[in-house]
Design a protein around this nucleic acid. Structure first.
Length: 111
DNA sequence: ACAATGACTGAAT
DNA sequence: AATTCAGCCATTG
């Protein structure tokens, strides 16, 4: 994987997600100019465990604010725990007040 | 070079 | 309104 690969871009954006905020796969994909490559973002996250530096994958959820990828973590409970530690309220694997904690790269960073 | 994969998303039923 | 279907596309075997 080259540093210029699509994955690397994804990691870069994910690292930009502020503390206590989350974003969605689609938002990242769209920000990267590949709005329909949301799956690739998820795939990138799957590999993010072996990537350096570490990527805050726990801050990335699907567009509904559901912890769809928690099962892919070393410890599925860790994702939920970390988000909670950042002040994000989670119930039944779903982020509460998602609209409030949602962080849209396009909106926050600007196009 | 071809086929398969997938932590998604939006449209169709 | 809820659930199912199909497209999507970079990476990998």
């Amino acid at each position: 994987m080259n540093d210029n690969s699509f994955y690397e871009k994804v990691y870069e954006v994910v690292r930009l997600v502020p503390y206590g905020r989350v974003t969605s796969y689609g938002a990242i994909a769209k920000y990267l100019g590949a709005a329909r490559s949301s799956r690739l973002v998820g795939w990138a996250m799957n590999v993010s465990h072996q990537v350096h530096p570490p990527v805050p994958a726990h801050r990335v959820v699907n567009r509904l604010g559901m912890l769809s990828g928690k099962a892919h973590f070393e410890d599925p409970e860790a994702m939920e725990r970390q988000l909670t530690a950042e002040g994000i309220e989670i119930l039944n694997d779903q982020i509460q007040q998602f609209s409030t904690v949602f962080w849209d790269p396009e909106k926050e960073l600007g196009l």
